[in-house]
Amino acid sequence: MFSRIRGVVGSAFAQPLATAERLSAATHLLSSLEYMVRRSDRVTGGLNDWNHTRAQVPAKTRTAQVLRDFVAREPVTQALHGSRALAAAVLIGPTRNNTVRMLANAYLAGTQVLIYPRHLFGTDGSDQVSFLVQSAAALGRAGGTQATRTAAVQFIGAQTVLSYGASGWAKLPGETWRSGDALVKIMRTRTYGDEWFFTNLQRYPQAARLLCHTVLAIECGFPLLLLKRGRYIEAGLLVMGGFHLANARFMGLSRFAWAFMSTYPAVRALAKGTGSES
């Protein structure tokens, strides 16, 4: 069984663009299914009641406003998400046709832009990642050559490296991050934390600070893994993968794991200097 898992992982890493598309499409699929079952957020009394939220995102032209109001009608919202789920299923499926995959990618990216204002409150970073992956994949495939697909892979990989680096460096001015208290304070919240984890972090404050500083150091230092032709990139990705899985469990950020890990073969390809089919 272990060798089978290795085979699957190896195959995934050998096709960085297809892997990114597939796993990121899973993020879109999960996201659309979530929205479909949360109708209560959009009716009167919901925090995305379009009657009120439309004033938060006024369109610049009358046509754009009419389009947004149309998309915000519940049957249209549901239909869009249903069609997005289908497009995601196509990408997750085995089809290898470049045009079909390009169109499915473009559809996911385009409908995400269309529907973004409708779900104004409650979006998060995984939405940003999944949009980037699908639009980059669409563009790379639209170019029609191995070179443009490779450019898409490099772009996706570079964005993830930037994401970790920027996230780390942007934390440094924060007093709670520098002191090492940030982790226990985030974990104490009900929104982003976990009671069991918080209790243990409080019980072992030195370990909590060490863990906090370790996360900070790994994020800040992640771009360095691109050096030496990515000799340590696999180790770095394994650590960050563990970080995302822990976040899924303790912070409830399940879609982040799918979205970010979808880009890992692309990060590796960028570090090693290989192409879209290595």
């Binding site: 920027a166 996230s167 942007a170 985030i186």
Partner: peptide, 23 residues
Amino acid sequence: RTGTGIMIPNWRFFAPNPAVEDQ
């Protein structure tokens, strides 16, 4: 130009000051 802010991502998660309280 999409008016959504999604094209250019903001990668500065929980930074510089993380969410440490519930609303």
